[in-house]
Structures are given as C-alpha cells and as structure tokens.
C-alpha cells in the first residue's frame, strides 16, 4: 500500500510551496521561517505540542490567517491580498475543523450542496447527486435530511469531510479532526480519512493519532515553537533506533 502511494506520487511539481514564511500575532512570532513543499497526492502529517503553531500553519495555506513575510504558493497561485486569488485557492482546498463547524441551521444535504451551488454554480440536481455520492462515501447516506444537531460527533465530522470534498478540492486540510471525538468515533473518521488518502488526495493532517500517521503518512513533520524541528518518513519517526531532536524525543516519549 505504501509503495502504491509512492508510485502514484509521481508528479514532480509541488502543489504547496512555503518559502521562508513568517507570521506574527502582534509581537508574538508564531511561525518562524517555515519552508515546506508538498507534492500532489502526498499525505503530510504535522505533529507537535500544543501551541506550536500547527493550526496556524495550515490555516495560512487557505488564507484563514494571513502570513506577513515569505511566500506561499498553492496550486500555482501566489497567496497575496488579491481577493480573486484567495477565492480560487479556497475553491481548491477543503478544510476540516476540530469542532466540525457544520452549519446548524441547514440539513446535512444543504450543508454539502450550499458551496458547490453558490461558488461553483452547479445546478441543484448535480450538487445533490454529488452530495449523495459523498455521503455514501462517508457511509451516512441515510442522514441526508437530518440537521447537524441530530447527529453524533463522528457522523458530524464525516459530514464535514463530505462538505469539504463537495467542492472537489485538490488539497484537504485537517486540523485535529478527531480531537473532539469519543474514542469509538475516532475510528470511523480515521477510516474515512484513510480511504481518502488511498484515493490519492493531497492531505495535510494535524493529528495526535500516531497510528494513523504511521499507517497513512508519506511524511511527518514535527513542529515546536513555530519552527519545523524535524521532518521525515513515518517509519523513521516511529522507529526507536533513530536519534531524534531532543524536543521530538521528549514529545514522542510523552505521547507513545
């Protein structure tokens, strides 16, 4: 399976490029000199202690946060103040939040079809057909008519994934998608993510699920205090034989 992924990852142009990117919250230097390239169909897992800037990093990629220095190029488009560029990048990236952030006043179906219809101007028929396919993919087609408030956490997160996928993005960003879930629901969400990874989606995943990282990731990044401290394939990361950066080692000791 791993080999297959490596094979598919044949494309040579990186889909996300960050170069010497810096970001501050006021005086607080939250991302420091981040340089990162993500290839199409790559699955990149970002780990690190709380407050290390993981969320900020991936939120910069779809411009939910603005970076102040350096460059970010997503799918060949430079992230700048141009509203048009931002809109295009957002069309190409889907995002899944820790708190799901479904629209509580819309049914599951409407949650999914809203953006394709408004942004991509699909006809309702097409949008709904696509939504049903996605709901089947995340294995909850029977919930289409319910409101988010009627679903369990795991189901809600799967709807959130379907909602992001409905825009047919090339990149998916996951910000701790399982952290707000009960243990038995974590698996159902991870299964969906695994399936997505296998299908060749480019994914940036912030997670503490080391099992998932080991099994699915092509590359793991460890961040600390706004810097990328260590980077490598998962088998190296979780192998006890390798000598890690002391911060990495400390983190891995705590978590494993």
């Amino acid at each position: 399976m791993q080999e297959l992924n490596q094979q598919v990852m044949a494309s040579d142009e990186p889909i996300i490029i960050c170069r010497e990117m810096n970001k501050w919250f006021g005086d607080f230097h939250v991302l420091r000199n981040i340089t990162l390239e993500v290839m199409p169909q790559e699955v990149l897992v970002i780990i690190g202690p709380s407050g290390s800037g993981k969320s900020t990093l991936i939120r910069c990629i779809n411009r939910l946060e603005e970076h102040q220095d350096g460059r970010i190029v997503v799918n060949g488009i430079e992230l700048s103040h141009d509203v048009q560029n931002i809109a295009e990048i957002r069309r190409e990236t889907g995002m899944v939040f820790q708190q799901f952030n479904l629209f509580p006043h819309l049914t599951v179906m409407d949650n999914i079809t809203l953006a394709p219809m408004k942004v991509r101007h699909w006809a309702r028929d097409k949008a709904e057909q696509r939504a049903m396919e996605l709901l089947e993919r995340v294995e909850i087609p029977e919930q289409a008519c319910k409101y988010p408030g009627q679903l369990s956490g795991g189901q809600q997160q799967r709807v959130a994934i379907a909602r992001a996928l409905a825009m047919e993005p090339r990149i998916m960003l996951f910000d701790e998608p399982t952290s707000a879930l009960d243990p038995e629901m974590i698996k159902e969400v991870l299964d969906v993510m695994k399936e997505l990874a296998l299908s060749g989606m480019t994914m940036l995943v912030v997670t503490h699920e080391m099992g998932f990282a080991r099994e699915v990731a092509d590359r793991v990044i460890f961040m600390d205090m706004g810097r990328i401290v260590e980077e490598g394939p998962p088998e190296n990361f979780f192998s006890p034989d390798i000598v890690h950066h002391p911060r990495t080692q400390e983190f891995l000791d705590q978590i494993l």
Binding site: M95, Q99, L114, K118
Partner: peptide
C-alpha cells in the same frame, strides 16, 4: 467564529456567508 471560517473555507464570499450562514442563524 468557526461558522464564518467554515464558510470561507468552502469558498463562500463575504456576502454569501452573511446571507446564507450568518443571517439565518
């Protein structure tokens, strides 16, 4: 705030976010 962020993340414009997400709620 998550509602606005989610709406922006799926590509809705500010007006669309206001009209379809914020105002109804």
């Amino acid at each position: 705030r998550g509602q606005t962020e989610a709406a922006q993340a799926v590509g809705l414009s500010t007006w669309q976010t206001t009209l379809h997400i914020l105002l109804p709620q």
